[in-house]
């Protein structure tokens, strides 16, 4: 599903290049559950953003579902990721002025679903994550764990093939974290969603079936 070849990413400061990703070669099969680990600043988020097409590499090639991502036009790229990829963030990134219901609905609007379809999908999601009672609340009226549930529900609303999660449990306590991890495992096994998560926790990493270690922008070992 994903094939990264010779990916380099750097930031130019003055005349020197600071490499954040160096020579990344990586293949990820559909249906796998990958955990990316590594020390702070090693480039995990950057890698995830490149995979999620929010960021572009400076060198290398990236094939996603048989498409050469870096060769696509911006519009086609947006089409591609909005159809197939869901994002979950450490800081939730819910839209403050929208209710829980509307937050989950947002990606569906952009994917062109009709109003009635949207309503039934969002209701399903609310049911599934047991947050029906919260649907009219605003993000700042929810606990961190609840906000992350909404974030995940939003990411899954458009039934993506790939779920990208950058430290999804980073702001949560361990019990909430476990719940989210159980959820991911279930999604991966039952709904066949491919998951790539960044995590600092060894324990969370074991939920997946593959661990990639980054050190200083290089994949170290598997």
């Amino acid at each position: 599903m994903i094939k990264l070849e010779k990916i380099y990413r750097w930031y130019q400061t003055g005349s020197t290049r600071n490499f954040v990703l160096r020579d990344i070669n990586l293949e990820i099969e559909e249906g796998s559950f990958v955990s990316i680990m590594g020390p702070s600043g090693s480039g995990k988020s950057t890698l995830l953003n490149v995979i999620g097409m929010l960021d572009q590499a400076d060198e290398g090639s990236y094939t996603f579902m048989d498409q050469d991502v870096f060769r696509l036009k911006e519009k086609q790229r947006v089409e591609l990721y909005k159809k197939h990829i869901g994002f979950v963030f450490q800081a939730y990134h819910l839209i403050d002025e929208l209710t829980v219901f509307e937050n989950i609905e947002t990606p569906l609007i952009y994917q062109g679903y009709k109003g009635s379809e949207r309503k039934s999908i969002v209701s399903d999601m609310l049911d599934r994550f047991q947050i029906v009672g919260k649907k009219d609340l605003f993000p700042n009226q929810l606990s961190g764990g609840q906000q992350q549930l909404v974030g995940i529900a939003r990411a899954l609303a458009g039934s993506p093939k790939l779920l990208l999660a950058d430290e999804p449990t980073g702001n949560l306590n361990s019990r909430q974290g476990e719940e989210i991890m159980d959820l991911f495992k279930k999604l991966n096994e039952e709904d066949k969603v491919t998951i790539i998560q960044v995590t600092h926790s060894e324990k969370n990493a074991t939920y997946g079936n593959r661990i990639i270690n980054l050190l200083d922008g290089r994949i170290e070992q598997e």
């Binding site: 929010l54 990721y81 994002f87 990134h93 819910l94 839209i95 947002t106 990606p107 952009y110 939003r154």
Partner: peptide, 16 residues
């Protein structure tokens, strides 16, 4: 900006 960027990641186009 944050809200708008989230929308962008959710797939909102420039025109929208």
């Amino acid at each position: 900006a944050k809200g708008i960027m989230v929308r962008k990641i959710m797939g909102a186009g420039r025109k929208q």
